[in-house]
Simulated scan of single mutants.
Amino acid sequence: MGQPVAYFEITSTAPEKIRDFYTALFGWTAEPDPSMDDYAMVDTGAGPDAIGGGIGPSQAPGDTGVKIYVRVEDLEAGLARATELGADTLLPAMELPGGYGRIAVVADPDGNPVGLWA
């Protein structure tokens, strides 16, 4: 069984500008949440089976851009497999607030960030 793309994230050093761009371009809604450093959960308006996402501020130098999060059954096994295949860990496994599971982020062999979500 394949692993589905489960979430997308867009980070920027100018998150308000980027939020305005994507909401105007695609008709999405994305309200910043002050309790999450103005990170905004995106509603694409595509219904309950659509892939969700978020738009927010960059957290570190070089952390701007678009990344996907892929659903994995076992986060540690996914991290180990990614390392075997030449990935570097950018964000070690961590718990998401609110019981939303755990994530980690790796850089693929070309340096593209990819999130793993269990």
Results as ranks from 00 to 15, higher is better:
Leu85Pro: 04
Glu31Ser: 09
Ile68Asp: 01
Asp108Tyr: 03
Arg81Thr: 12
Thr23Phe: 11
Gln59Asn: 14
Phe21Arg: 07
Thr44Glu: 04
Ala24Met: 15
Leu79Pro: 00
Leu90Pro: 03
Ala107Ser: 09
Ala60Asp: 05
Arg71Gln: 08
Ala24Cys: 11
Asp74Ala: 15
Gly52His: 03
Gly98Thr: 09
Val72Phe: 03
Thr64Ser: 09
Gln59Met: 15
Ile68Glu: 02
Phe21Asp: 06
Ile55Pro: 00
Ala87Trp: 01
Ile55Glu: 03
Ala24Phe: 05
Asp49Thr: 10
Leu25Arg: 14
Met41Ile: 15
Ile55Ala: 02
Arg102Val: 11
Asp20His: 12
Gly101Asn: 05
Ala87Pro: 04
Pro109Asn: 02
Gly65Leu: 08
Asp49Phe: 07
Ala80Ser: 15
Thr89Gly: 01
Ala40Leu: 02
Gly78Gln: 02
Leu75Gln: 11
Val106Arg: 02
Pro34Ile: 01
Gly45Ile: 03
Glu16Asn: 07
Thr64Tyr: 01
Ala80Tyr: 01
Met41Tyr: 07
Asp43Lys: 15
Gly99Gln: 12
Asp49Gly: 05
Gly98Val: 11
Ala93Gln: 05
Thr44His: 03
Val105Asn: 00
Ala24Val: 12
Phe21His: 12
Tyr22Asn: 01
Arg81Glu: 12
Pro15Val: 04
Thr23His: 14
Ala93Cys: 00
Pro109Ser: 02
Asp74Ser: 10
Ala107Glu: 01
Glu95Asn: 12
Leu85Lys: 08
Gly98Cys: 07
Ile68Thr: 13
Gly78Ala: 10
Gly65Asn: 06
Arg71Asn: 06
Phe26Met: 09
Pro34Gln: 03
Pro48Ser: 15
Phe26Cys: 10
Lys17Gly: 06
Ala46Ile: 04
Ala14Tyr: 04
Thr13Gln: 07
Thr64Asp: 15
Asp49Ser: 06
Pro32Asp: 06
Asp49Tyr: 04
